[in-house]
Design a binder for these strands. Structure first.
Length: 675
DNA sequence: TTGCCTCGAGATCA
DNA sequence: CTCGAGGCAA
């Protein structure tokens, strides 16, 4: 093939620039200059030229949005700056309190400038541009680690593959919300319906599902959009010092921001914005579940800082949750792992807040009595806090004439054992322990779960069958199962059965902490299991300890210590544990850094700056594991400050107060981690 | 709590 | 083709 002549190269460049300009006019500025057909002709010409001269193709060419080949799996991405969650406000008082807190912390009586925007119902993503080219697109994940979905992000027409304009930093991380417009969603479903394909139930799930496709061609066929709402990591050039100005420069680089953003002053401004958007909510092109307020000044944001996992300078003001009426078909009692009886309302299915709700927990007997929900009642349902369905109230006028209050059962509805309710406790419990099939099933689920023994393939269905068939009466029985027994069950062939036996075998090699966690002792979750393991080091030491000795463990109080001691004192539990050990469930000896001789034990430590080898969360976990406490700010009570790169005011304060400061390398040595 | 995607494997039908 | 497990997101 002949190399492309310079004139052709030039033409290709011109075409790309032209197409990108029209993209920007169309998607970002919402102001197209040429008809679609003319745009299509430009694209067609570019495609033809690139086909004839493949050496001219570059990844950022507008023709390369769909990279072609599916990815084998999603890679993990660590967010350099964590993607935090945000606090919620539901009532105007919450907003007033927010504004008051902000002014108190900033020690000002002046009205605060706030940047406001709608809170879109989509999913948060982080995009990284290096030298102006899209390099990475990732989901939020847990805020620290997300998934690499670059191949799918590239297919979104409103995402520029190359930044336009000038003056962008060498490295720019931007955050935004990927969503589907209501019209796009309806149109997509209409087409899917015509073709007899399955339709999506709501735009949010459709958008989330689309980003999780392995094959970008499928994603490209979904009407995804994006609005950017903030900058993350920036290197090489500072951004403006007002949030609203940052949004402006982002827009200048072709990154679409919400046209509804607005800067207001003071709490009245916030509430006015909320009402304005609320009035226009139904005429917006997309679904929103509230609005977001941010302190506009970046300097003020910095001074306000963070609390736990949310910044103090922003808050989401949610619209009231959508409510629907339905009827109660039944009220059932669920028996949990610890025997706790929970009343659950089985409802006539009703579509509310984008999903079909047919169950709603009533939490406990007190809650049930307070609301006096009865079978046959008409009730108001909403999805509280985004997720969990809630019975708001009963419509008394519609109550059937002969109905009666639900009472706490005297006997366990599953096994018939006595039900006990301790003085002053809200929960009632079945006393059947592992003889109760419900408790047994839940215990086994917990035992096999990922953070416990992690037995792959042992799911709900299989556990139900094993218990119902009488094959398993306690966790120890799991390890007696044979391929033949398993293969006899529903939907279990030889292959599946062998896989389960294999993963059971695999799960026997565990850690002391996981083992303790798996036992399901009351009040012993992952964290407590970890400190118990560190403190006692061996099962025998723990088993033979009196409650007082267990109480010596940091963060373990008399109640938890009592539960732990009682658990091991129970001969039924002892038998199960012995059986597990007999089946060679085992773990490596717990290593050196016992809490007692750890250098961090009882120390208060502050982390500042970026560590190169781990996230702050991880560093915090290490410290806590070694008996230390992590604090957010430096004071005279601080024993130690760990300074990573770019450490700021906390380091300064530490020096002022004469607090000992450790570099990352020294810290790693201290926690017994080498580089 | 629900909905979505992916994967492995069992069930079903030609 | 269908189902269950497992993982993710809000």
């Amino acid at each position: 093939m002949k190399p492309a002549p310079a004139s052709l190269r030039h033409r290709v460049e011109r075409l790309r620039a032209e197409i990108e300009r029209h993209n920007r006019l169309y998607h970002v500025l919402d102001n197209p200059e040429i008809p679609d057909a003319a745009y299509d002709r430009l694209m067609a010409e570019l495609r033809a030229l690139e086909q004839q001269h493949p050496e001219l193709v570059v990844p950022e060419s507008p023709t390369q949005r769909v990279g072609g080949s599916p990815v084998p799996e999603f890679a993990e991405v660590r967010h350099q700056l964590p993607m935090l969650s945000l606090d919620n406000a539901f009532a105007r008082e919450d907003v007033e309190a927010f504004d008051r807190r902000v002014r108190e912390r900033l020690e000002t009586d002046e009205q605060i400038g706030y940047a406001c925007e709608p809170k879109l119902d989509g999913l948060a993503v982080s995009l990284t541009y290096r030298d102006g080219l899209l390099a990475l697109g990732a989901t939020r994940g847990d805020g620290t680690i997300g998934e690499d979905v670059t191949h799918n992000i590239r297919t979104i027409p409103t995402v520029p593959l190359r930044l336009s304009g000038r003056g962008w930093p060498d490295l720019l991380e931007v955050r935004g919300e990927v969503f589907m417009s209501s019209a796009g969603f309806d149109e997509m479903n209409r087409r899917a319906n015509e073709k007899g394909e399955k339709i999506f139930v709501n735009p949010r799930n459709a958008a989330a599902g689309s980003l999780r496709q392995l094959d970008p061609r499928l994603t490209a066929s979904r009407p995804l959009e994006i609005y950017f709402y903030s900058a993350g990591r920036v290197e090489g050039k500072p951004l403006p010092d007002l949030h609203s100005e940052i949004l402006k420069v982002l827009r200048g680089w072709g990154l679409r921001t919400s046209p509804e953003t607005q800067v207001v002053t003071g709490v009245d401004g916030l509430l006015g914005y909320y009402e304005d958007i609320g009035r226009r909510r139904s005429s917006l092109r997309y679904q929103i579940d509230g609005v977001v307020y941010k302190v506009d000044s970046i300097e003020q944001q910095r001074r306000l800082g963070f609390v736990a996992r949310a910044p103090r300078w922003q808050i989401a003001h949610k619209f009231p949750a959508e409510e629907e009426m339905t009827t109660v078909r039944a009220i059932e009692w669920q028996v949990g792992r610890t025997g706790a009886l929970t009343p659950v309302a089985r409802l006539e299915p009703v579509f509310v807040g984008g999903v079909t709700v047919s169950n709603a927990t009533l939490h406990n007997i007190d809650e049930l009595k307070r609301k006096d929900v009865r079978v046959g009642d008409s009730v108001i349902i909403r999805r509280a806090g985004d997720v969990i369905p809630e019975v708001v109230r009963v419509i008394i006028e519609k109550r059937p004439s002969k109905s009666s209050s639900v009472r706490l059962p005297q006997k366990c509805p599953v096994c018939g054992s006595a039900v006990e309710r301790e003085e002053g406790e809200a929960v009632a419990r079945c006393t059947g322990a592992l003889t109760c099939p419900a408790q047994l099933k839940e215990s086994l689920r917990h035992f096999a779960s990922r953070r416990a023994l992690d037995i792959e393939g042992l799911g709900t269905r299989l556990i139900d069958q094993l218990v119902d068939a009488g094959l398993v009466r306690n966790p120890g029985d799991l390890f007696k199962l044979t391929v033949e027994q398993l293969a006899n069950l529903d939907r279990m062939g030889d292959r599946s059965a062998a896989n389960v036996v294999e993963s059971l075998e695999h799960s026997k090699q565990t850690t002391f902490a996981r083992f303790l966690h798996a036992l399901g002792i009351r009040d012993v979750g992952e964290a407590t299991a970890e400190v118990l393991a560190q403190h006692f080091r061996s099962l025998d030491a723990l088993r033979s300890s009196p409650a007082e000795a267990i109480e010596e463990v940091p963060d373990v109080g008399p109640v938890t210590a009592g539960h732990v001691h009682a658990f091991f004192a129970d001969s039924r539990n002892a038998k199960v544990i012995d059986a597990l050990i007999q089946h060679r469930v085992r773990w490596p000896a717990v290593q050196g850094n016992s809490m007692r001789d750890s250098p961090l034990s009882g120390k208060t430590i502050v982390l500042t700056g970026k560590l190169s080898t781990m996230s702050r969360e991880e560093a915090g976990d290490h410290i806590r594991k070694l008996g230390g406490k992590v604090a957010g700010s430096v004071s005279k009570n601080t024993d130690l400050v760990v300074a990573g790169g770019d450490a700021g005011s906390k380091l300064k304060k530490a020096t002022q107060l004469g607090v000992k400061v450790l570099e990352e390398a020294e810290f790693l040595k201290l926690i017994g981690r080498k580089r």
